[in-house]
Amino acid sequence: MQAKSAGRKKRNLQYRKWVPIILMGLPGLIYLIINNYVPLYGLIIAFKNYNYSLGITGSEWCGFKNFEYLFKNDAAWIITRNTLAYNIAFIILKIILGIAVAIFLNEVRSKRSKKFYQTVILLPYLMSMVVVSYLAYAFLGDRTGLINSLLNALGKPSITFYMSKQYWPFILTFVYLWRQVGYGSILFLATLVGIDDTYYEAAELDGASKWKQIHYVTLPLLKPTTIMVATMSVGNIFRSDFGLFYQIPRNQGLLYNVTDTIDTYVFRALLQDGNIGLSSAAAFYQSIVCFVTIIIFNYVIRKSSSEDALF
């Protein structure tokens, strides 16, 4: 009897030790639960005829009506296509250019110039999308933009960029890469710096050219980092960079066909049209496809290398 109660006391003591530690973690956990978990309940708005005065619980159910409305016109297809197509292009180009920049940076031996390049290439990442939209406007504006003033100087007519949708896939991709490549290269560079010089020395002894060294030594050693970067991006393939797609085309209706993504659509339905039902249906649709992607993706990763699986 006595031994048993002593054991319980000991266990109690052990748990008591954790109380202050868990108390320290509590503010963060409570915040995450409120900010990230409570809104999950709000996903049911997608199936309701939301009414501000009645609230989420009080509003009437309306089945799939919001979804019918969303999928009835082309909008659902267009925003899905845009979100996916841009993200796929972004992921591939960002990785290729990020690796290129990292390899070139790693080649530069002088510490000063290396730091200079890195500082400059990273600068765009620190600018808010609002500022970036001003920068883009300085180039693309109808009357004042640099491109049009150059075109006019050459005797060519101006291009009204903010009304011509054919240019926007390139503009948006360019702006995205302009802002992200420097940031993306850091991870690759960190891996490259860690590569043992003896690999290259051995390759050199074998008479391998620089290109061959990159092909057979550098790129294979970058594979794990590349997979990690790709993994993180693919999980978010149905989420778009709202700032990019909202700020850079300056929310021009004529361009929606090629600039509208799920996130900008949700935003406009919510704040500009005040259509909560439609907005939450689109948001719900996004959450579900995201979730399914991650589950499938995690399954694939666990099959190939269980260590890298997320859960």
């Binding site: 900010n35 978990y37 409570v38 709000g42 919510l270 939450s280 996004q286």
Partner: peptide, 12 residues
């Protein structure tokens, strides 16, 4: 990985 989206966050 997953969140309730801006609509319900906004309402909350």
């Amino acid at each position: 990985l997953f969140n309730g989206g801006i609509v319900s966050t906004y309402i909350m």
